[in-house]
């Protein structure tokens, strides 16, 4: 992931838009710049307009973000069952 991809937080509720992740479930592909998110797009949680988001430079907590699994699940492996 490019270092200069940015994160934006909704000031109405705290919803996070990460340019690196996009919002595929809302039709916004990973890597989509904030400037390229449609101007009439609103926060999926609280409907705040785009201009009420603020860029933040805050690191993720350990183990975050949980990325959605892309593609088919890996087949079960006996080896993986024994990895502790």
């Amino acid at each position: 992931m490019s270092e200069d991809l940015k994160r934006f937080i909704c000031l109405g509720c705290g919803f996070l838009y990460d340019e690196a992740l996009g919002l595929p479930e809302h039709g916004i592909a990973p890597g989509t710049r904030w400037a390229d998110v449609p101007e009439n797009w609103t926060c999926p949680d609280c409907f705040s307009p785009k201009h009420l988001f603020q860029m933040v430079e805050i690191p993720y907590a350990a183990g975050e973000p949980h990325l959605p699994r892309v593609g088919p699940l890996a087949p079960p492996s006996e080896l993986s069952l024994h990895v502790i």
Partner: peptide, 9 residues
Amino acid sequence: FLPDQLLLP
């Protein structure tokens, strides 16, 4: 307050 880390438990 903004948190010091995103997506904390």
